[in-house]
Design a protein around this nucleic acid. Structure first.
Lengths: 229, 229
DNA sequence: TGAGTAATTTTGTGATATCATATTGAGTGT
DNA sequence: ACACTCAATATGATATCACAAAATTACTCA
C-alpha cells in the first residue's frame, strides 16, 4: 500500500515524554496546517496506522480530535478526507479570521513589551530569508508563529486555540493557492503591524492585522475559487 | 465506586445509529455545557467507563475530543478535571463571546426570513415558560438553541463550532453563578434581538446581542469571581 | 505520633482480537 | 458491452489484554 506516498506527512520530533497519540495528533495537525495533505484525498485509519507503523488506537484518537476541529471530515460512509474549500466557506473563514485576530491583537496591546516586539521583528526577518528560498511550509509556520507570539502576550488569552482552529481549516487551501501562484502575494504587512505595536496604537494595529490577512492569501484565494465556479 | 453519583451526567438518548464514542461525547459535552460536572472535580477514564458501563476505549476518544476543545483539562499527572474559572479567563471568554456572536449575528442578517424569526419567538416563549419553573438546565439549552438558530441561517456559516467551544468553557461556571444567585439575572434581551431582526437592522442587532451577553451572566459572574479574589 | 519508605492498587496507554458493516471485484446474465 | 448480484476483502468500532507509571495504602522506624 503506497499510502505513505500519498500521505507525505512531514516528520516531526517524537519526544520521549509525550504519548503516541499526541505525536500522531501533532504530526497530522502540522501536515494539514501546511497543506501537505491534498483536500479531497481519502484517508483510512488503518492506512495511517500502517504508514506510521502504529496500531489503529492512537491514530483514531488523533483523527477524532482533528475531526472535532473540522480539520478532517468523517463522512457517513466511514470515509475520511480533508474538506474541500468552497467560495462561500472561504469568505466566511477569512472574515472570521479577521474578526478573531483583530480582537486578539487589540487585547494584547496592554501587555506588549519591547522584548516581544524585538522577537517579532526577528521572526519577520527570518520570514524574509525563508521567503527568498521558496520554502512555503516554513513560511506558513513562521507566519503563524509571528501572529501567535503577539496574541500570546495576553496572559489570560483564550483566543489562540480558536484562531488556530481557523488556520487549520484554511491551511490546505492556502497551500493550493501558493502552489498555483508560485509566489507569495502582496507586500509584507508585518512591518505595519510592528510600527503599530511600537506606537501602542490599538486602531492602527487592528487595521494592520486586517490588511495582513486580507492582502495575504485572501484576494488570490477568492480569484481561484471564482474561476472554478 | 460512587463515581456515578459525583458524576451525575444527565441521560441523553442513545440513538441506535450513532457510535458509542459519539454518545459518550455528546453526553459528557452536554453535562459540561449545563454545568452538571463540578469544576475541579477529578474524573478518571476507568471511572467513567464503569459508570457508563462501557470499555475505556470510546471513553478515551470522547474525553480526548473534549480536552481538545478545552472543556476538560488533562493534567500532567494523568488527572482530568473541568477547569476552574478565574476572573481573567472569565473576562476574556465573555469578551470573545461578544466578538464572535456579534460577528455571527451580523453575517446572518442577509439570510433572515420571517419563518426563522417566528421560530426564534417560539423558543423565547418556551424559555419564559421554563424560567418560571426554575429549570436551569433546560434554560441553558434553550438559550443556546435560540442563538444557534440565528447563526445557522447563514448557509456558509463556520462560526458555530467556535462559538460552542466558548459556551463549553463558560458552561460550568455559569451554572455556579445561577445556583449562587438562585435567579436568572437581568431582563430578557431576546425581545430586543427579535425587534432588530424584524427591522433587519444590523447595528441594532449587534447591540442587542452584546447586551444579551453582557447583562446575562457576565455581570453576576464577575461579582462572584471578584469577591473570591 | 509523625515522617519516610516500600508494597499494593489504580490508572492511562497502546496493541490485539473480534464483530458488523461498507467497499471492492469477480462473475453472471442480458 | 453493460448492469446487476453476490462473494471476498478491507475497514471502523469496541472490548480485552499487557505493560508501565502514578497514586494510594501499609508499614517501619524515630
Amino acid at each position: 500500500m503506497a499510502k505513505a506516498d500519498t500521505l507525505n506527512v512531514p516528520e516531526i520530533a517524537f519526544g520521549a515524554d509525550r504519548t503516541t497519540q499526541e505525536y500522531v495528533y501533532a504530526r497530522l495537525r502540522n501536515a494539514i496546517m501546511v497543506g501537505a495533505i491534498e483536500p479531497g484525498a481519502h484517508l483510512t485509519m488503518r492506512g495511517l496506522a500502517e504508514a506510521l507503523n502504529l496500531s489503529p488506537t492512537p491514530i483514531r484518537e488523533a483523527v477524532r480530535r482533528l475531526s472535532t476541529e473540522h480539520a478532517l471530515q468523517i463522512l457517513p460512509n466511514r470515509r475520511m478526507t480533508v474538506p474541500l474549500m468552497t467560495l462561500g466557506r472561504f469568505e466566511e473563514l477569512v472574515a472570521l479570521r479577521i474578526t478573531l485576530e483583530v480582537h486578539a491583537a487589540e487585547r494584547s496591546v496592554p501587555y506588549i513589551s519591547d522584548i516581544i516586539i524585538e522577537n517579532m521583528v526577528a521572526l519577520d526577518n527570518e520570514m524574509d530569508r525563508v521567503l527568498s528560498e521558496g520554502h512555503y511550509d516554513a513560511l506558513t509556520i513562521l507566519n503563524q508563529d509571528f501572529h501567535r507570539m503577539l496574541y500570546a502576550v495576553n496572559p489570560h488569552q483564550v483566543c489562540i486555540p480558536v484562531i488556530e482552529s481557523v488556520w487549520l481549516q484554511l491551511g490546505p487551501f492556502q497551500r493550493q493557492v501558493l502552489v498555483r501562484l508560485n509566489q507569495v502575494p502582496g507586500v509584507d504587512h508585518h512591518k505595519q503591524i510592528i510600527s503599530a505595536l511600537r506606537a501602542r496604537d490599538v486602531v492602527a494595529l487592528g487595521e494592520a492585522v486586517k490588511n495582513d490577512i486580507r492582502e495575504g492569501i485572501s484576494r488570490s484565494g477568492r480569484q481561484i475559487l471564482e474561476q472554478v465556479a
